[in-house]
Amino acid sequence: MRKFQDYRDSVHFYGRIWTAAAILMLLLAPAAICVRYNAWPAASAVLKGLLGVAPIFWTTGIIEVLTYAPMLGTGGTYLGFVTGNLSALKVPCALNAMSGAKVEADSEEGEVVSTIAIATSSIVTTVIIAIGVLLLNRLTPVLENPVLDPAFDNILPALFGALGVVYIAKNPKIAAAPMLFMAALFLLVPGLSGAVGVLVPVGALIAIGVSRVLYKKGVI
């Protein structure tokens, strides 16, 4: 049987091919629309729009790669960064799968389970959106029913409440400092809620720093 590194190398090989193709197709999609309608936008119009979103979203995009890549594993990262929706879907899905299968994130078993979870999640998401779009006329009155609004408004609390209790119960000593810091930060500066992606690595650095000190002191 091939070693973990050989397997990872082959995932890198195929992952880079798929990612290159994805980048090319992503750029070809708006280009095709420009050609079809003979409507290339002025560079200044695109720049104006980009100036509004690029500073925060380019930073978040780079931070997401640095933070989530170790959690998702090699295959999960190549796939997750093409299919998107990482924080609220792919990363928790991978964590849940690895926890359920009782495998460690930086082991080969973790790599494989994470990839299976993210691939499944990507396919199911794509299929649900496709069915939803095809049945839009029938589904819109149900989905946009105001009664259901609170349920969809509270996806993140519902997700991170359950996920949080598992990880906090497993590591209460490591969890305390970043939790208190983040709770205090959002209490003092509620406007930061739009930048939660940027704060993920801050939480990670605090948790790693605290756990290193506790580990060295033999507390954990």
Partner: peptide, 16 residues
């Protein structure tokens, strides 16, 4: 690795 996960979870718990 656990610290990395907790860092992410703490940001979203703080958001609450």
């Amino acid at each position: 690795m656990d610290s990395l996960f907790l860092g992410m979870i703490s940001a979203f718990i703080g958001l609450l």
